[in-house]
Amino acid sequence: MTIEEANIREEVLLICGCDVTRCMKCGKCSASCPAYDEFDIKPHQFASYIARGDMYELMQSKTIWNCLGCFACVERCPRDVRPGKLIDGVRQAAVRRRGGTHLQPEDIPSRIDPDTPQQLLMSVLRRERK
């Protein structure tokens, strides 16, 4: 773990307020995740990655952009680790560092249709840019 990674870890833990040492590796989060197959780093691995400080790997993972934020893992985690908050913490750390978005604004018009609700666009904006 580099000093920079240690700093990122510190920041992520502050953002999410979770205690990764409580994780007992039961896999309930991964088993509850509707987007499990879309993830390269699985929800249950987040606690270990953060504990070890492999923050660069986490920040480059697809997981942080593919997480649906559905709170199923947060709800069912028996140890109150709340992996969803960890993923979101890493995503925010990544967003803050790149200063930009995962989806660029110009990517968006082609993807919307007349029924696309504002809620969707707001969610995307909130989640993917600073």
């Binding site: 509707p34 199923a72 993807r111 995307v124």
Partner: peptide, 19 residues
């Protein structure tokens, strides 16, 4: 009470369609 895919439908409509 399972997720419909939420805002991911913008980027991955196929995926949300599956859910």
């Amino acid at each position: 009470n399972e997720c419909c895919g939420g805002y991911r439908s913008l980027e991955e409509p196929e995926f949300t369609n599956r859910l």
